[in-house]
């Protein structure tokens, strides 16, 4: 990447800012404007090479919400809920843990979190990629869907809580099972478990890859185990390699042959529900 001149970079100390002020500063800078509230999502694509660094994030919500273009936003500290909601392009890199609702209804772009994150990761996400170094809470990847060239991808380094991929309609979830959480923090029993209960309940599209085996009782009744084929291995190789290079992990530690594939039993789970 070309080195950016200083006018294309902004550093913000979020310590004494409310989330609205912080997000307004980010937007104004990405729009190349200093105008008050008169900022538009339309402008955000114009200054695509801009970079924003936020220091001391302390639970500020909605960072990256609804942003377009392909700006780079680095966050140090702990950003708040709905990070990157409705986001459509930019890359967010979080040097710390994330909270709930990351990538809510995200359309495209990339979110990288160096740590753990909370519940409802990637809810209804339609495109883009999210890489979580460690573990996620409950309800990850609910109702993810793909459309045309858009295929949303969640790569989770650690474990995932209950309801992973519920109602999933498209996209890819990859669960690596590294970095197991402290026992006390585990939302489910057992040291070796990397996934919670009700995985893939109501799933009717997309794929979930889990490293190692999981017990049948953890699966929702709409999902079944299947064997990864050649295409799956290529795909896994691509995303596992990306994960390893983002988080400095030895690629050889994660052979792609060790994955189990979960797919929906039916693409029309509710087809026979009604009497006409």
């Amino acid at each position: 990447m070309k080195k950016k001149d200083d006018s294309m970079r902004l550093s913000i100390d979020a310590k004494n800012l409310g989330y609205r002020e912080l997000n307004l500063k980010i937007r104004n800078f990405l729009n190349g404007s200093g105008r008050g509230n008169d900022i538009g999502y339309e402008g955000n694509g114009d200054n695509c090479s801009r970079e924003v660094t936020i220091k001391n994030a302390l639970g500020h919500r909605y960072i990256g919400d609804g942003l377009k273009g392909d700006a780079l936003i680095n966050v140090y500290g702990t950003p708040g809920n709905d990070l990157g909601a409705f986001m459509d392009g930019p890359t967010l890199e979080i040097f710390g843990n994330g909270q709930d609702g990351i990538g809510n209804t995200m359309n495209s772009g990339k979110i990288i979190v160096h740590g753990d994150v909370g519940d409802i990761l990637g809810y209804s996400m339609r495109g883009g990629e999210i890489y979580i170094e460690k573990s996620i809470g409950f309800r990850g990847g609910i109702h993810m869907k793909s459309y045309r060239e858009k295929v949303p991808v969640l790569v989770i380094g650690g474990s995932a809580g209950n309801f992973l991929g519920e109602y999933m309609a498209g996209g890819i979830i990859i669960l690596l099972g590294l970095h197991k959480r402290e026992k006390a923090a585990l939302p489910f029993a057992g040291k070796t478990d990397i996934i919670g209960n009700y995985t893939g309940t109501g799933m009717h599209g997309g794929k979930i890859y889990v490293r190692g085996n999981i017990e049948d009782y953890k699966l929702g009744k709409e999902v079944r185990k299947s064997v990864a084929g050649k295409d799956d291995l290529d795909l896994l190789d691509r995303y596992v390699t990306a994960y390893c290079s983002l988080f400095n992990i030895d690629r050889k530690k994660i052979p792609v042959s060790s994955f189990l594939k979960l797919i929906p039993c039916s693409y029309r789970p509710y087809g026979k529900l009604y009497a006409y």
Partner: peptide, 16 residues
């Protein structure tokens, strides 16, 4: 914004 022929399922609650 969903592929042709797929069921459009709106879950009963918003899961967020």
């Amino acid at each position: 914004m969903i592929p042709e022929g797929t069921d459009a399922i709106s879950p009963a609650p918003h899961h967020d």
